[in-house]
Nucleic acid binder design. Sequence first.
DNA 1: GGCCAGGCGCGTA
DNA 2: TACGCGCATGGC
Length: 289
Amino acid sequence: MTLQKVIFPVENYDLALTLASGQAFRWRRSGDAWEGVIGSRWVRLRQENGCIHAETAGQVEDWQWLRHYLQTDVDLETILSAFPDDSPMREAVAACRGLRLLRQEPWECLASFICSSSKQIVQIEQIVGLLCRRFGPAMTVPPDMNCAGAFPTAERLATVSEAELRECKLGFRAPYLCGTARKLAAGEVDLSRLGGLPLEEARAALLTLPGVGIKIADCVLLFAYGFQEAFPVDVWITKALQQLYFPKRRANLPRLRHFSRSHFRPYSGYAQQYLFHYMRTRRSPNEKK
DNA sequence: GGCCAGGCGCGTA
DNA sequence: TACGCGCATGGC
């Protein structure tokens, strides 16, 4: 079997930062490259000299699926220059140069984030890996490559018991994933239709699914459908907004959500990802220099 | 060993 | 509307 290869020139793109930034959960570092799965394709990516080098197994007609996933045609400078001109955002941008948003497949993104609640990113990666290994369809991979399958379909997970999901470390999230998979398999919500709706309507549809609240819905709206104004508020973003924008008084979650909806437009989603990564990686203020 | 993690759903005030 | 709590599991 021969590997198919392609090279994309990119600007203002930090591949490693992006793949490891907690939006997608199937990427593993392997030497100077990253190996992962996009849809039903095994992929290896490497950034070198202003280019992303990609390899995949199996036939490739064209590479649009990969450009779309990596969002290589997005002009990041335009987005960064539209961020609010305040010191938190300036610091976040300086700390995360080249951080991008990916465009993921909706079901995988939704299911992954149902697994994410009250979990650290490494644990989410572990859960998603177990789901793929156990229930995912096989893929074409390079020889001698031990790789889990592609992400299992909603139809497949709809047939799986809660107990089997708990064996994949889902814990209390098992009935959520089970329930959502079954609702989708039954056609009660059509994920392929949400991208064409206004943001509020797409969010409302996601909120009818078990285990999906505002935060997870906003992750899917942003990371899968590309709604630029979605702004997921998780524990890190709560800390960021509280410390950086409301240091004097305690602000509750609804208030923070309200503030974020107006303050960071129009590229709120990108701003959120920058704040998220900035908070997770910056040295804590009381840590010694 | 204790705190906390890319939360949600439900009960209560 | 705004909290508080329980829910599994494991990283640090």
